[in-house]
């Protein structure tokens, strides 16, 4: 039986988690629905502008080309950020697809060794959220994710914060996943397995 203080703490943590999810959903939607289309429209306008200059100078051509490339790159970034920020990424793309998106967004390496762990939708979403949180916590440090049938493993140079590791472990436990971490001088390795104890 959970003590009242613990119950209150768990309820507050759940409330904060829900707020965080709502904020990410809002951000993802704004990127997708507003920033993306606006950049696309700007790109189309830049192409139209090119058509209005009958004989562009070399400098004008170069400037327009630079503008178009910059807008194309910005659209791609917005698309990736919109997907990565979405709390529904795993539901949409499955575990392997979601981790592929996260790896691209955070510049991490990804190796897929066979089929991903067999998890229900909630577990799959929690696993991807844990990997995302770990990537965030690792900051700019190099990270390497390996996905296999048994677990998702991540090796990251910047993931040495004991508080963060404890929070990840608690989140994994709450989601019914098993979380292991192991520190070495160069990096921390975390593993997320199906079948933990809530």
């Amino acid at each position: 039986m959970m003590a009242p203080a613990s119950r209150r703490g768990a309820s507050e943590a759940e409330g904060l988690r829900r707020l965080r999810v709502a904020e990410r959903r809002r951000l993802s939607r704004l990127l997708h629905d507003e920033a993306g289309p606006a950049l696309c429209a700007a790109g189309l306008a830049a192409e139209m502008l090119r058509g209005t200059i009958p004989e562009p100078t070399r400098e004008q051509q170069e400037l327009l080309g630079r503008l178009e490339r910059a807008l194309d790159a910005a659209v791609e970034t917005v698309r990736l950020l919109s997907q990565e920020a979405s709390p529904d990424l795993a539901a949409r793309r499955g575990v392997a697809g979601a981790l592929e998106t996260l790896a691209r967004a955070f510049g991490a390496g990804l190796r897929i060794e066979g089929a991903p762990p067999d998890l229900p939708a909630e577990g799959a979403a929690a696993l991807c959220e844990l990997v995302r949180d770990a990537l965030l916590a690792a900051g700019g440090g190099e990270a390497e994710i390996t996905l296999s049938a048994g677990c998702a493993r991540m090796r990251a140079a910047g993931l040495a914060d004991a508080g963060v590791l404890a929070a990840l472990e608690a989140a994994a436990r709450a989601a019914g996943l098993r979380f292991l971490s192991q520190a070495s001088p160069e990096a921390v390795i975390i593993e997320i397995h199906p079948g933990g104890t809530r």
Binding site: R29, H32, D33
Partner: peptide, 9 residues
């Protein structure tokens, strides 16, 4: 679909 206007969640 996640995150889209009207169909996003």
């Amino acid at each position: 679909r996640p995150a889209g206007r009207g169909v996003g969640v």
